[in-house]
Nucleic acid binder design. Structure first.
Length: 107
DNA sequence: CTTGTGACTGTAC
DNA sequence: AGTACAGCCACAA
């Protein structure tokens, strides 16, 4: 059973339009998570996701514009492929242009 | 109840 | 520029 905060985060992530990405801090702020460690809680919320989750967690990236460090060890490229399929361009370092793809926070 | 860890961020050197 | 430190919250043992 997930906490309400986690569901709140998932709901927000699910609101991210295709071709856009949001940082943990961005999601945290939009989710209304108080405190300075909100980003951590967002990361934890995503970590608690199920394998059958419908949440496009791959659209959530860190402040560096890179995908999470905890991606599937078996398919680390999966997240990148999903984003590329949405029109997001990645750099050789697996970095994307946050200034261009960063979600405005509105649908 | 206490301790430890974690999908992070921001500031400082 | 890249690296290092501190902060805060939630969950598991």
């Amino acid at each position: 059973m997930a906490s309400d905060r986690n569901q709140r985060v998932w709901q927000l992530v699910a609101c991210i339009p295709e071709g856009k990405v949001a940082t943990y801090g961005q999601v945290a702020a939009l989710a209304g998570l108080p405190g300075r460690s909100a980003a951590r809680q967002v990361g934890y919320a995503l970590s608690a996701l199920s394998s059958d989750t419908v949440v496009p967690w791959h659209r959530v990236v860190n402040a560096k514009g890179q995908v999470s460090q905890r991606a599937d060890p078996e398919r680390p490229d999966h997240q990148r492929l999903l984003l590329e399929a949405e029109g997001v361009s990645f750099g050789l370092e697996g970095v994307l242009d946050l200034a261009k793809y960063r979600w405005d926070g509105e649908t």
